[in-house]
Structures are given as C-alpha cells and as structure tokens.
Design a protein around this nucleic acid. Structure first.
Lengths: 149, 149
DNA sequence: TATTGTTATACTCTATAACTATA
DNA sequence: TATAGTTATAGAGTATAACAATA
C-alpha cells in the first residue's frame, strides 16, 4: 500500500484528506515525478522536455503552438523549453517559409539519437511503476484520467 | 471527454503520450489545481495551505513535523508555509514545554472561522469535479491513487 | 485586426545544504 | 550524537501582460 495507508495508523486525524481526490492526485503526481527523476538521472530531461522530444520525433516539422496545445503549456513557457533544447543541440527551429510568423521544429541527428535512449529509459520507468502499483491498476487509472482537461 | 480525446483527432501523432500514465497524471493534476483556484479565488489559499488548516483544525497542538509527514512536504518548506499562515493570523506557533525543540501549532479563532468557510468552498469544488468527471469515477480514482507514495 | 511567437516578470512548489537549539 | 525546526538558496513549472513580426 502507499504512504497514505501507512499514515492512517500513525495517529493524526487526516480529516478526510485521505479520501480527497485532489490531495491524492497531488501526492501521486509527486511520486511519479520523483520516480521519473530516478530513471532519467544525469540526462537533464524532465517530463516536459521528454514530451517535446517525443512529439517532435513523431511529428517532425510541427510548430511550437502545436506542442503547446497538446501539452497544455502556454506559448511563452514553451518558448523557454525549446530554447533550452535548442541550446543543447537536440532541436532545431526555423522560420516557416509559407507563414513567416510560424516556426518549424525538428529533432537534430543528436536529438534522434537521444530520444531512442530516452524511450528506453521511459519503458524501464513505466515497467517499474507497473511493478509497484500493478499494471492493471495503471491501465484503469489512465482510463479515468483521460476525462480530465 | 477530456482534452486529450479532443486532441487525438486534431492531427498530431501523440506517440503514445495519450496512454502514458505520467502525462495524464500531470494534466489531471493541473486541471485539479486550476479548478481549485477557481473555487478558492480571493482567499489566497492553495491546496497546501488548505491541507495545513484542515489538519490543524482536526489535530490542534500537533507539530510541524507531523504535518510534513502527512503532506509529504519537507520541513524547510513547511516552515515557510506556516510562516505565511501565522503572518495572516490564521495559525499560532509556540514552543512546546515538554520538548523545547518542538513546536505546538493551533488555529487561531480567526483560523477556525476561516476553515469553516474553506470547507464549504471545498465541498462545492468537489461537487463540481464529481459533476464533470463522474462521482463513481472519482471514487475509483481515489482507490487507485492510494497505492502511490 | 488577428495570429504566432518572444520577452519580461513574478509567484508557487520543490530540493539540498548548512545552521541553531535542544535532547 | 541525534532530533526539530529554521534559514539560505536555487531550480522547475506556471501565469499574465506587453511586445514584435507577419498575415
């Protein structure tokens, strides 16, 4: 069982927090973030930058605005995330000829090599979570989480 | 349905992100945070400070370390959260006589008034989420989230 | 005028380490 | 020596607003 169930016997009255979805969701997200960090140590890659690299791998030539929409990140913050990946030579950004307001994004060769390595880490990360929580539970979790915005 | 399902028809290949528990968990947490913010607007209360006030309401006299453990917040960060609530005269902190290293925390009268109002807001917030996502789904979600740490 | 993206800025949350004071 | 809490600091994520360039 998780931390919350270990705590209920520890004396403090949780006042219903242990059945409050927001409290549990926050704790689960921090757990996932910590576990992600364990598996991506030394890469300098966070869940957000991993998502960007994966999306660019699957959608070469897409625009920052496309990534913003999928990831739920505002465009100003997307710009800074992309700046960092471009600084690391994993992504290249160019002005789109057909609409000079827009940008075209693409993984560099180095970025393609990197994403292969990162996807392997991601598979190990997901396997570890499935082992700990139960693959069937994680699948049901995903089904429910898709209803959120 | 949620944002992800509206996006799958929008052209971009999500490369499996839409079935990746971490991606969905992050999005759901941000959704919950945004919705919490809507319902707690003008209060200056966040999920973390709400949890502290609720725990102190149910456990008058407990210590910062107790809150840290339940909430999964490190003690240095708990100190700053408490400083803020104390500055707002919602909480009082005193040195514990039986162990002068420890502190005793308590809601002020103003804090007790505040938590009653906040709990009403929280009920409306949870009702809104139940309406949007489905109460039965939220219940199943909580069951699964309890397995995390 | 509307859209795409960038810059500037501020706030919250999280994390590590060094520190104080007690036990 | 160990424990409870504080202070200092830095990094990541998020948000709003103002702006530039282009359509």
């Amino acid at each position: 069982m998780g931390r919350i169930d270990r705590l209920t016997s520890a004396g403090l009255d949780l006042g219903g927090l242990d059945t409050t979805f927001g409290f549990l969701l926050h704790a689960a997200w921090r757990d996932a973030l910590r576990t992600f960090g364990d598996h991506f140590a030394e890469t300098g890659i966070t869940p957000l930058t991993y998502s960007i690299l994966l999306l660019l791998h699957r959608n070469p030539g897409c625009a920052p605005g496309d990534l913003s929409e999928v990831m739920g990140v505002t465009s100003n913050n997307m710009t800074r995330l992309l700046d960092e990946l471009i600084g690391r030579k994993l992504v290249e950004r160019s002005v789109r000829a057909t609409d000079r307001r827009a940008r075209t994004l693409r993984l560099t060769a180095e970025g393609e090599t990197m994403i292969a390595e990162l996807r392997a880490r991601h598979r190990r990360y997901e396997a570890a979570v499935n082992d700990r929580i139960g693959a069937e539970r994680i699948e049901r979790l995903c089904e429910i989480l898709r209803y959120f915005d």
